[in-house]
């Protein structure tokens, strides 16, 4: 309890002190490696009206930022629980927003984390985590590799 409370009572406030690698989360329902999609693709444009509206209702974006936090925690300390958390939440989003193709119990989902960073002046993207397949409907625990 105290370990969760104390960081809030004595915060560090070191916002954006450095711009580190930025993870993005992708999923695939296919067996091969060619069909990876962003879990929550960033829109091409957001109107000014939408920006104002998002002050009050920004659920999808906040959930996206939370998934990024989950991915960062997983990369920091890859435990089974953290893999479970990220995979199950991504699967929920895919089921809710894209629909499960056919029989969800028979469809597998994998997720991967792609990190973008600047190296020698260029932006480089590399895959830093891939989960094993698990049923899209949820259930079995995946193993990370």
């Amino acid at each position: 309890m105290l370990t969760l409370w104390l960081p809030a009572l004595i915060p560090s406030w070191r916002f954006f002190d450095r711009i580190g690698p930025a993870p993005s989360i992708e999923y695939s329902l296919a067996a091969g490696d060619d069909d990876w999609r962003d879990v929550r693709p960033r829109p091409a444009r957001v109107s000014q009206v939408a920006m104002v509206g998002r002050l009050l209702w920004n659920r999808r974006w906040n959930e996206r930022l939370y998934l990024i936090s989950c991915a960062e925690r997983l990369l920091d300390d890859p435990t089974i629980e953290r893999v479970d958390e990220l995979c199950s939440r991504v699967a929920e989003i895919v089921r809710a927003e894209h629909g499960a193709p056919g029989d969800a119990a028979a469809v597998s989902i994998r997720i991967r984390i792609v990190e973008a960073t600047r190296q020698d002046g260029r932006i480089v993207r590399r895959v830093v985590f891939v989960s094993d397949a698990r049923p899209l409907a949820g259930g079995s625990r995946p193993a990370a590799r």
């Binding site: 954006f16 450095r18 711009i19 930025a22 993870p23 993005s24 960033r42 829109p43 091409a44 444009r45 957001v46 920006m51 998002r54 974006w61 996206r64 930022l65 990024i68 973008a116 960073t117 600047r118 932006i123």
Partner: peptide, 17 residues
């Protein structure tokens, strides 16, 4: 440059534009 990186590849900008 740091703010440039925020816009270039961080997770935060709300649109590609």
């Amino acid at each position: 440059r740091a703010l440039g990186d925020v816009f270039a590849f961080s997770v935060y900008p709300v649109s590609e534009a």
